[in-house]
């Protein structure tokens, strides 16, 4: 017990010293390369793709296949959590949180719920213009459902609707990728007109994919919270 602690602390000390030494050779707040991949992204995004937010362009367009994998990992996490925790069908009201909130809490959450959903939708529709995007918007929507699930003891979300929304969003993502392939190029090739910078309808396939990702992430995380919250020991 004592020995293990000493061992771990000495190991961490060695690791920390090496990490510190390696990092302090980098200059903080300075560019490391004269001509890096950063410059290519920063010039190509507003010139060719007509997208204002460069991070969105990297996540959806330049590294779009990674995003498909990421969404798949999130889907697998939801599925694994549901199958690990499965104990049979739940009855209504058989919930970890068995009581409703007070009148103030329920009225306040009913008041806030549409505003939170609207904020989430705004964040993922404007993902290519302002900070935000599909993942952030989806998480905000899941937070709104979490608020309702915590406030009301008998609030329930239909699993069928969630899986239909999730599947449709996933199919949209894959179909757009395949359409790019049909259009004569690689998977997730940009085939729509780009428009002009800082317009809502600009950026080719980026807004469509990010809206699909927003629906998919929102449905997945809502399902995950619902599974965990319905878990009764």
């Amino acid at each position: 017990m004592k020995m293990k602690k000493i061992l771990v602390i000495s190991l961490l000390a060695v690791f920390g010293v090496y990490l510190t030494e390696a990092l302090f050779k980098l200059d903080f707040g300075r560019q490391f390369f004269q001509q890096g991949v950063k410059d290519f992204y920063l010039v190509t995004t507003p010139m060719k793709l007509q997208v204002a937010n460069v991070v969105t362009a990297i996540v959806v367009n330049f590294r779009g296949f990674d995003t498909l994998g990421e969404v798949t990992v999130l889907f697998l996490a939801t599925t694994a959590m549901g199958s690990i925790l499965y104990k049979g069908r739940h009855q209504l009201g058989e919930r970890a949180v068995l009581f409703s909130g007070s009148r103030i809490v329920t009225t306040g959450s009913r008041l806030l719920f549409p505003a939170i959903i609207l904020l989430g939708a705004y964040v993922f529709i404007h993902g290519h213009l302002t900070p935000g995007g599909g993942f952030q918007g989806g998480v905000i929507i899941a937070t709104g459902f979490l608020l309702m699930l915590m406030a009301y003891a008998d609030y329930s979300v239909s699993h069928i609707v969630l899986s239909v929304v999730e599947s449709l969003a996933g199919i949209t993502f894959a179909t757009i990728g395949l359409l790019g392939m049909l259009h004569g190029g690689s998977f997730l090739q940009d085939f729509l007109p780009n428009g002009s910078l800082n317009d809502l309808l600009s950026g080719g396939i980026i807004p469509i994919i990010y809206i699909a990702v927003g629906f998919k992430v929102g449905a997945e995380l809502t399902g995950l919270i619902y599974t965990a919250l319905n878990e009764k020991d």
Binding site: A96, V123, G133, Q136, V139, I140, A228, E231, D233
Partner: peptide, 26 residues
């Protein structure tokens, strides 16, 4: 990094905390 700040605020503060609290309750 406003994109990352938005993600961290939504996921780290709200969702991770609630998953941990559900686990502790169980």
């Amino acid at each position: 990094a406003p994109d990352v700040a938005l993600t961290e605020a939504a996921i780290g503060v709200a969702l991770t905390t609630i998953i941990f609290i559900i686990t502790i309750r169980n």
